[in-house]
C-alpha cells in the first residue's frame, strides 16, 4: 500500500503546483481588468468567479463528466486536438482543479489590486505613467506578496480536493488517484491503519504550507524594511 500512497502524494503535490501556477497566470490579468472595471455588470462577473466556492464539488464534477464526454463539444474538441480523453486523465483533473480553486486565487488578487489602485495606481496614472510601465514596474512588484498568498491559497485548497476528482478521475494510480481519493479508498476497504497514516502525512503537508503562507504574508504590498509587518 505504501507505494501507491507515495505516488498519490506526489501526484497531488504536482496537481496542486501546476493548478496554482496556471491560476496565478490566468487570474492576474483578469483581476486587474475586473478591479479597473466599474461598469454595471461587475457584480455578475464577481458572482461567476465566486460560484465554485458555493457549488458542491460533486455538482461541478458531475457536469464536467458530461462536458468531457467525447460526444459533447469540449470532449470532442480536446480529442481532436490531443487524441486523448479528458476524463480519467491528469489534464482532466487539472481542468477541474482550475475551476474548483479559481476563487481562492482570484479573491486575494482582487483585494490586492483594489488596494494598489486606491493608493498607488491612481496616482501613477495621474502622473502620466503608461499602462505597460505601471503593470510591469509598479503593480507586479507591489503585488509580489499578494501573488504569493494567492498561490499558496490555491495550492492548499487543491491539496484537499476530493468530490470533483471523485467524479471525473477514475481512480487511476499515477494519473488521477490523488491523496484524498486514496484515503477514501482505504476507508471504504476498511483499511483504517493505512487511512490514518496517509491522513497524517497530508495533514502535515497542509499545515506546513499554511505556516509558510502566513509567515511570508507578513509584508503587505511589498513594503520594505522595519514596517514590513504592517
Amino acid at each position: 500500500m505504501l507505494e501507491t500512497d507515495f505516488t498519490a502524494l506526489l501526484l497531488t503535490v504536482k496537481l496542486a503546483i501546476i493548478t496554482s501556477v496556471l491560476l496565478v497566470i490566468i487570474c492576474f490579468p483578469i483581476a486587474w481588468l475586473l478591479a479597473n472595471y466599474k461598469g454595471r455588470f461587475k457584480p455578475y462577473f464577481e458572482a461567476i468567479i465566486a460560484l465554485p466556492l458555493v457549488l458542491p464539488p460533486t455538482l461541478l464534477g458531475f457536469y464536467l463528466l458530461v462536458a468531457f464526454s467525447p460526444n459533447t463539444l469540449l470532449g470532442e474538441v480536446w480529442h481532436n486536438l490531443t487524441g486523448h480523453q479528458l476524463a480519467f486523465s491528469f489534464s482532466g483533473i487539472i481542468l477541474g482543479s482550475l475551476i474548483y480553486s479559481l476563487p481562492f486565487v482570484m479573491q486575494p488578487l482582487l483585494v490586492g489590486f483594489n488596494q494598489v489602485n486606491s493608493q498607488y495606481n491612481n496616482a501613477a496614472i495621474a502622473l502620466g505613467f503608461s499602462t505597460s510601465k505601471r503593470f510591469f514596474f509598479l503593480l507586479i512588484p507591489l503585488l509580489k506578496s499578494t501573488i504569493l498568498s494567492a498561490f499558496s491559497l490555491g495550492f492548499a485548497h487543491t491539496l484537499g480536493e476530493f468530490g470533483l476528482v471523485l467524479m471525473i478521475g477514475g481512480n487511476i494510480p499515477g494519473e488521477t488517484q490523488v491523496v484524498s481519493i486514496a484515503l477514501y479508498d482505504h476507508v471504504e476497504a476498511l483499511n483504517y491503519q493505512a487511512a490514518h497514516e496517509l491522513s497524517l502525512i497530508l495533514f502535515a503537508i497542509s499545515f506546513i504550507c499554511l505556516v509558510l503562507l502566513f509567515k511570508f504574508n507578513r509584508s503587505n504590498l511589498g513594503f520594505r524594511g522595519k514596517n514590513a509587518s504592517n
Binding site: F68, S69, G75, M167, N171, Y184, E188
Partner: peptide, 16 residues
C-alpha cells in the same frame, strides 16, 4: 475504477 457501481454506469453512460 469508479467509486461505486453506479458511477461505473455513469462513466459508460456519459461515453467517457
Amino acid at each position: 475504477l469508479a467509486h461505486n457501481i453506479t458511477q461505473a454506469f455513469q462513466f459508460v453512460d456519459s461515453a467517457n
